[in-house]
Design a protein around this nucleic acid. Structure first.
Lengths: 355, 355
DNA sequence: CTGTTAGCGCATTCAT
DNA sequence: ATGAATGCGCTAACAG
């Protein structure tokens, strides 16, 4: 291949079949090919067939870069999560991806790892790729970054967990019925002291956290149940968790139920309870946010307040694509929901200990 | 800005600050701005400062579309997974994302959902976006699609689980030591019949599956242990699994250990064992591929063969970016590893039942 | 060291 | 119904 003496250099990489190759092969102009490919504008049935055959033969796929440059629409969504290690993001991401795929959109992921610097860099990358919308999967480290992007014209949508006001459905609203049901059940069973166990506090505090806790506290208090907030530190060290659990339960009037505020925390607490020889549910009842096959498999099976993150992801993506004019209409698909699933880990509390 | 009578229409969307705005603001040419932004080519310290200030002031970020169009390098990686519902992909994806981010690359995700049609469409999208490399996270529904892309010049890299030959490290190689250790332990404990439990067969069969099974069978057989392959169907229906377990164990010479071939299957089996009142580990020992906090929390704690998918993801991404000339060198970072973690769910088998 | 110029692949307008 | 012409934002070659 002799280098041509043109001013602009030919980029490296494989030749790549462009719209011009197709046009030449089909004996039409590039404009016609473009019209056929995008489905906009006129094209007779005959030429359409010819073009499509050429496309097929050459394996032509329009370049998203070129199209995006020309149209300022990249057919790309960005998803920013605070911690990709959190398994709840998987179904959420999945929901987003499925809807996006159905409408020809691509999905870029970004994991801020709870670091402002990383978040900054990730957002830069997403913006550089001109994502048409940014879905924020959880709380943001530095709201200023987002504000800047928002002013720059980027559409920002927050998942139910992400806090802020621009949420389609608030996490609290979704969870409220299930939380009330669970708290009512605890009270009905006779519990009068409940520990609300959270992981180490994050900075900034997870909005979800406070909304949940507030509702739990309110609901239980109204029913005459005292709530004791417990912050579990060093959750990666089983021994620390175990001693914390011992300390919590070795009191004159210990809580008779543990409400675990975050699913990833649950197995760690259960392990500590087992290590501390605490009988479930005889000595304490156990209930956690978030479900998994393991929670159901555990003996006793663990009661849960479960959210359908997949549907949440779908719903958020639907809404965004509708806003972008890329999806027909949100439709009245199943709204995101939360359910309370009482299981064997919740039971009547032991008789009150002597004072 | 008065609309110019040019032929090309102005695309919709927010104005967006381009390289020209920066150039004007800084009083230099666009070429100079480009040089400063990309770090390639000369630029005096003074002008560099001026440009950077203008960039900062205007909030300019180069458009990846335009840059990609011009350079044929999109700074984008694609990750194709067969089933985004599988939790192992989370750490893997995380590893890829972290390395990509560190080198300014974006990550596009695609979930084929084990459907050829979806896969086809997903690959089309990834190709349209001209991902510089495609990381395949698991087996592919239709190898032809991949072959086509590969011929089109796309770099395809397969994760250890993805089968094929172009893998940096084969899953079997990574897992071999741990598998041998686990099998040896089973034999040493006195087990003579082991059930190897898999989920419903996939089409095409997961390569990982057969490689694992072959090694297990071979290792156990050599040590005088019989292996009984069991395919569990209808894994979403607890009752079906329970009856299958009952059937498996209600035989004259039942297996004394269950080896679960896939982590998502484990909680379902454990639930069925509990429902069938099978004592663990007294009546049967239990061992599974894949680890999670829940496996450690279960009582008895579940023995596992664990792989470090995060490191695998990092390693794959490192390698790809190195191949692309975007990362310095793979370095001799920790290689992906698998470990066998014996836990309480493995014990001496019950005395042989009378014939 | 910096500016001018051309063109990457595509969608669009306008003329035919 | 189709083609010619234009420019989206950016970078690479070249001239100065």
């Amino acid at each position: 291949m002799a280098p041509s003496p043109e001013a602009g250099a030919r980029p490296a990489g494989p030749p790549g079949v462009t719209i011009r190759h197709v046009a030449a092969d089909a004996g039409v102009s590039t404009a016609t090919v473009s019209r056929v490919m995008s489905g906009r504008g006129y094209a007779s049935g005959a030429t359409r067939q010819t073009v499509l055959q050429a496309v097929e033969r050459l394996g032509y796929r329009p370049s998203a870069s070129a199209r995006g440059l020309r149209t300022a629409r990249t057919a790309t969504l960005g998803v920013l999560v605070a911690n990709l290690a959190n398994p709840v993001f998987l179904p959420f991401l999945r929901g987003v991806e499925h809807v996006a795929e159905a409408h020809g959109y691509a999905v870029l992921i970004a994991d801020s790892r709870r670091s402002r610097d990383v978040e900054r860099h990730e957002l830069d990358t997403l913006y550089a790729h001109r994502v048409e919308a940014l879905i924020v999967g959880e709380s943001v480290e530095n709201p200023e970054h987002l504000a800047t992007l928002s002013e720059a014209g980027l559409r920002v949508v927050r998942a139910p967990d992400a806090g802020g006001e621009s949420t389609a459905w608030s996490a609290a609203a979704i969870e409220a019925p299930a939380i009330v049901a669970a708290c009512t059940r605890l009270a009905d069973l006779g519990h009068r002291r409940v520990a609300y166990v959270t992981g180490p506090a994050t900075r900034p505090p997870a909005p979800r956290g406070s909304a949940r806790r507030d509702l739990v506290v309110q609901t239980l208090t109204v029913r005459g149940v005292a709530v004791e907030p417990v912050t579990m530190r060093g959750t990666d060290d089983p021994d620390r968790v175990t001693s914390a659990i011992r300390e919590l339960l070795d009191t004159p009037r210990p809580p008779t139920a543990l409400l675990c505020a975050a699913h990833p925390l649950a197995p760690r607490l259960l392990r500590a309870l087992a290590d501390a020889d605490v009988a479930l549910p005889e000595r304490v009842s156990f209930l956690t946010f978030g479900d998994s096959p393991w929670a159901a498999a555990y003996r006793p099976a663990i009661a849960v307040i479960r959210r359908d993150a997949y549907t949440e992801g779908r719903a958020v993506a639907q809404r965004v694509l509708y806003d972008l004019g890329a999806a027909p209409e949100p439709g009245s698909a199943d709204p995101p929901l939360a359910t309370f699933d009482p299981r064997q880990s919740m039971a009547t509390p032991p008789a009150a200990a002597p004072r």
